[in-house]
Write a protein that binds this DNA or RNA. Structure first.
Lengths: 241, 241
DNA sequence: CGCTCGGTTGAGACGGTTCAAGACGTGTGG
DNA sequence: CCACACGTCTTGAACCGTCTCAACCGAGCG
């Protein structure tokens, strides 16, 4: 386990209080954890698997607005309705807290609210980064950016220009398409074009080797994704991407 | 003044502490308040005018990731670097606090941090809403959505189907284009198409009358923008759009 | 008066979507 | 073990929306 969750970053007394409140839930791939506009009855931490947050238009178009991985916090505190649906993008296990009880705990322990604040700020930065991606990058750039982010997640990546790194895409093509604001067909075309250029190698539909990271960075049009996030003093863990 | 700023939603003692720390700054249209990746030396509240938050790519492409109006909070607390530039989108006056001093105050007054938390959560919802707009709406839909948001901001709008409402676009065409992830030319074309359909009337480049709000909603493809935000218990003020 | 700047208009090119068909791979039942 | 079927991914061709580039317009200002 690389990352430490919000609950592990607070003092021991508070950890015990949290533990008392917690219960686990499991969902199968595709199940809905919290529907869009549903009152948020519980919040929590992802123990294993991947959650997707998504919004949809009346006519059925959908946009994936975020992914949550192990140790990420999920659920909308302080304000009844969830603005987006939370669904299992794989089989998942969640560590849950009844929302009101959790909120009361933040009143007694400002430290807890502070950790939540740090996570939220990171998520906000990530969301704005994504706005940049959706608003002014081409589809190939988006896909390259997405791959670079996966490289970063997959850990061992001290910008080694020549080395080959294998990455795993933890979600379906359809989800990737929705996340990147494009279609499955286009992703397919771009990915195969990338193999033709020797940037990546396709192991199977969800596993790839990055053969030429430098070219991937060039293709993404974003130098900022080449390096690790600037592990700021408090940076916490939240999915800053 | 319709909205109450973060500083006015806390208890009087804290308001006095804040007042002691505050100083005003003014910027001319176009000036930079905080550059991208600059260390955030101060944070604050918009007194008058409009701020734009924007990110840019190495090659010069830019994305406006948010607008800040009167009484909105600006600046990245708890974490040195600002992930985006903050610039004056008009002449502005700001009420500023030295960042470190402000952060120390949040330690002494959890209430202050809580208000900040509520604002941040609203901003996060807004950012994700914008991801939906950028990721899966067409340009005409985006422009209609933008107009509907302006309708909402301009206050008196209890969903009156027939009534005509005049709105003011407080930023330049270029900024609107960057906000909506499109170009000035396309905006121009769409807006004039909208007048041809009798949806709006152009007073001048930045003032419009909405003649048919129902059609505007249809065009936006989003029912959720037709109504006021569900003024949640704590909802605070932050630019939830 | 003529410059500049923001906005508008037009024509053409291009990227990406759409729709439809085909391949692949995986699990199921005979 | 093979045949079949289903979902997911891939490939192809045509189409359409939006961008690009360039010219034009009008207001504000020196």
């Amino acid at each position: 386990m690389r990352k430490t969750s919000l609950c592990n970053r607070v003092n021991v007394g508070l950890q015990k209080e949290l533990a008392k409140l917690s219960h686990h839930r499991t969902y199968r791939n595709g199940e809905t954890v919290l529907a869009e506009m549903e009152a948020t009855s519980f919040v929590g931490i992802v123990v294993s698997g991947v959650l997707r947050m998504q919004k949809s238009l009346e006519d059925g178009r959908q946009q994936l607005v975020g992914l949550l991985f192990q140790s990420d916090f999920f659920g909308r505190v302080f304000g009844g309705l969830s603005d987006y649906a939370i669904e299992a993008a794989s089989d998942v296990t969640l560590c849950c807290y009844e929302r009101r009880a959790f909120e009361r705990l933040t009143e007694r322990f400002p430290e807890l609210e502070h950790q939540l604040m740090l996570s939220t700020l990171n998520e906000l930065d990530a969301a704005r980064n994504w706005m940049l991606l959706l608003g002014c990058q081409t589809t190939p750039e988006r896909i390259a950016s997405f791959f670079l982010i996966l490289c970063r997640r997959s850990g061992a990546d001290g910008w080694t220009p020549g080395a080959s790194l294998s990455i795993h895409v933890p979600i379906s093509r359809r989800d990737v398409a929705s996340y990147l604001g494009t279609t499955g067909e286009t992703i397919s075309r771009v990915i195969h074009e990338m193999t033709r250029k020797g940037i990546i190698k396709i192991r199977n539909a969800s596993d790839f080797d990055v053969l030429n990271k430098r070219q991937l960075v060039t293709m993404s049009g974003r130098d900022d994704l080449a390096i690790r996030p600037p592990t700021a003093a408090h940076s916490g863990s939240a999915s800053s991407f």
